[in-house]
Simulated scan of single mutants.
Amino acid sequence: MSDATPDPKARLTHDDILAAGLDDWRKVLNRLKARFRTGDFATGVALVDRIGAAADEANHHPDVQLTYPEVIVTLSSHDVGGITSRDLDLARRISGFAAELGAHADTSGLTQLEPGLDSPAPQHLGAFYAALLGGEVNDQGEPVDPSGQAPGLWFQKGERGESDLPAQDHEQRWHFDVWVPHDEGERRLQAVLDAGGRLVSDAEAPSFWVVEDADGNRSCICTPLDRG
Score class of each variant (00 low, 15 high):
Arg92Lys: 12
Leu193Ala: 11
Asn30Cys: 04
Cys222Gly: 03
Ala131Tyr: 03
Leu66Arg: 12
Gly134Pro: 09
Leu88His: 05
Asn217Gln: 10
Leu153Asp: 02
Glu114Asn: 13
Glu136Cys: 00
Lys33Asp: 02
Ser219Glu: 05
Arg160Asn: 15
Glu212Ser: 15
Ala98Glu: 07
Ser119Tyr: 02
Gly109Asp: 12
Val180Trp: 10
Cys220Ser: 10
Asp89Ile: 06
Ala214Thr: 15
Leu189Tyr: 08
Ala195Lys: 08
Thr43Phe: 00
Asp215His: 03
Lys33Leu: 14
Asp139Thr: 04
Ser76Tyr: 02
Ser85Glu: 14
Arg187Met: 10
Gln112Asp: 15
Gly109Lys: 05
Ile94Pro: 14
Glu136Val: 12
Phe36Asn: 06
His60Lys: 13
Leu117Val: 10
Val48Lys: 11
Arg218Thr: 12
Arg160Gln: 14
Ala19Arg: 14
Val180Arg: 08
Lys157Ser: 11
Arg198Gly: 09
Pro115Thr: 07
Gly116Met: 13
Val137Ser: 09
Asp183Asn: 14
Ala214Gly: 11
Val48Gln: 14
Tyr129Gly: 00
Tyr68Gln: 07
Ser119Ile: 03
Ala127Tyr: 06
Ser219Gly: 08
Ala46Asp: 04
Leu32Met: 09
Pro6Gly: 06
Lys33Gln: 13
Ala99Arg: 15
Gln190Gly: 06
Asp63Arg: 11
Phe36Glu: 05
Leu12Val: 01
Arg187Trp: 05
Ser77Pro: 02
Val178Ala: 13
Lys9Val: 01
Gly196Lys: 11
Asp24Val: 08
Leu22Thr: 01
Ala130Tyr: 00
Ala105Tyr: 10
Ile51Gly: 03
Val192Leu: 14
Glu114Gln: 13
Arg37Val: 15
His14Thr: 08
Ala20Glu: 08
Ala34Lys: 03
Asp49Tyr: 02
Asp139Gly: 12
Thr84Phe: 02
His78Pro: 00
Asp87Arg: 01
Ala103Tyr: 04
Ala19Met: 07
Val200Trp: 11
Gln65Trp: 09
Ala203Asp: 15
Pro224Ala: 05
Arg93Phe: 01
Pro166Ala: 11
Asp194Ala: 15
Gln172His: 12
Ile51Glu: 01
Val73Thr: 03
Gly21His: 08
Ala53Met: 04
Phe97Cys: 09
Pro62Asn: 06
Ala99Cys: 04
Ala10Asp: 05
Ser2Phe: 07
Thr111Ala: 06
Ala53Cys: 02
Pro181His: 12
Leu165Phe: 14
His78Trp: 01
Glu186His: 13
Tyr129His: 01
Trp174Cys: 07
Asp3His: 04
Phe155Trp: 05
Arg92Phe: 03
Glu57Cys: 05
Leu165Cys: 05
Thr107Ser: 12
Leu47Tyr: 12
Arg92Ala: 10
Pro206Trp: 06
Asp16Cys: 03
Trp25Tyr: 10
Trp174Met: 13
Pro122Gly: 07
Ala105Thr: 12
Thr13Met: 06
Val144Gly: 01
Gln172Cys: 11
Ala105His: 15
Ala58Ile: 06
Gly141Glu: 00
Ile17Glu: 00
Arg188Ser: 06
Leu165His: 13
Arg26Thr: 04
Val210Arg: 01
Pro69Lys: 12
Ser77Asp: 15
Ser85Phe: 03
Asp215Glu: 15
Leu32Thr: 05
Leu225Arg: 14
Ala98Trp: 11
Ala167Cys: 01
His61Asp: 08
Arg11Lys: 15
Trp174Gln: 04
Gly102His: 06
Ile221Met: 13
Tyr129Glu: 00
Val73Ile: 09
Leu189Val: 15
Leu66Val: 07
Lys33Ile: 11
Asp63Met: 08
Pro166Leu: 06
